[in-house]
Design a protein around this nucleic acid. Structure first.
Lengths: 144, 144
DNA sequence: TATTGTTATACTCTATAACTATA
DNA sequence: TATAGTTATAGAGTATAACAATA
């Protein structure tokens, strides 16, 4: 893509293009399962411990609740999640994975990890781990 | 932001949030100079060796030529670049930095590097270098 | 015919504001 | 009054298609 020598030394440039490349790999890997990376993220969050309301799930994903609506519309149309009114508080929707949703999550998740491994494959395994660890350290540096 | 334990192990998640955080830092650092990160990228490319046409500059940035039009409209309105018809080929615009554009580039570039250093500051300098080197290796792995 | 810059348009992703139904 | 979900809408950021000027 871009090849300006000065620009390609910028971390902004490296991160942007790395994300672009990883997204390409993940999208291709998930294609057989009929979902995209963002949707896999939603399934992952929904699979956690308790069945959560739409708003709780949105918060855990760091997206707006209005964005979550459209995302769930799609996943529901694909038969991967189901929405039911909460028994005690009927304003809320309890969102759960369907049986298909659970198997899709398992298989698509595996494919996604493989895409990540492929992305990191130009590096020795230990260097790849350090790269992830470094990003993790930076993102959690504020929280103390 | 998001705190789902499963999700935050994904490289997709780490890259996305890292980019978000770096963009915040760079945007704040560039604010005194009245430009954004993408505009600094354009100035950087335009400063390279030969005065380039709009399309050449767009290619080096990896963006569409139609996107470049709006970007240059903004930079021209700010007095940082100037457009002139190419002498030999009057279809092309020669895009150059103005005097103000050149000093802005120098100062804003410095501020941007400082923002990057701040972003990497939770890591030991050597680890930060390795992180950049790792991304660079991954992005150039295809090209051989 | 092909190319450069431009405009009009549309598409994606996202958020804000307002509506509804419940509490 | 306040909250969960929804809808309508708008704003970035981007690209595609069509146009005028030039080659």
């Amino acid at each position: 893509m871009s090849t300006d020598p000065e620009l390609s030394k910028r971390l902004s440039y490296l991160l942007k293009h790395a994300q672009f490349k990883l997204t390409e790999l993940v999208t291709a890997a998930l294609k057989p399962y009929g979902i995209e990376g963002r949707e896999l993220g939603v399934l992952t969050v929904l699979a956690g411990d308790e069945p959560s309301s739409q708003q709780q799930a949105a918060q855990r994903l760091g997206i707006d609740r209005t964005t979550m609506v459209a995302l769930l519309d799609t996943l529901e149309a694909k038969g991967l999640v189901s929405r039911h009114p909460h028994e005690q508080d009927r304003r809320r929707n309890v969102v759960e994975l369907t049986e298909t949703g659970r198997t899709t999550l398992v298989e698509a998740s595996k494919a996604s990890w493989e895409a990540e491994a492929l992305f990191l494959s130009p590096l020795p395994p230990e260097v790849g781990r350090q790269l992830k660890q470094g990003l993790h350290t930076i993102l959690n540096a504020d929280r103390d």
